[in-house]
Amino acid sequence: MSETKSRKSKSSKSQSASYSFDIFKHELVPKHEIVPIDEAVEILKRLGVKPEDLPWIRASDPAVRAIGGKPGDIIRVIRKSPTAGEVVVYRYVIPG
């Protein structure tokens, strides 16, 4: 009797765990997107930097995982800024 009860509570727990949560809808998380390779080359040329000179972001970062980024990718982050309205920055995905 108690066994079924505890199992019931467990299943309801796992159900709420699978409840979908889109982290990009959270007010703290800005938009992330993977930059296509040809565009990335152009951006790096324009900025005059090597990929690893960009700020980094780990491959295990929840936002990177959500968009399926892999180490070596360049991620475009579109932040809301209190001073400029909207700012586009790039991050380089590192392993880890």
Binding site: I23, H26, L28, I57, P62, A63, R79
Partner: peptide
């Protein structure tokens, strides 16, 4: 916690806030 759950960009925003 924000860094772990929402990522580094969210942590940055939270730090500023």
């Amino acid at each position: 916690e924000i860094e772990e759950v929402l990522g580094i960009e969210a942590a940055r925003a939270a730090l500023i806030r």
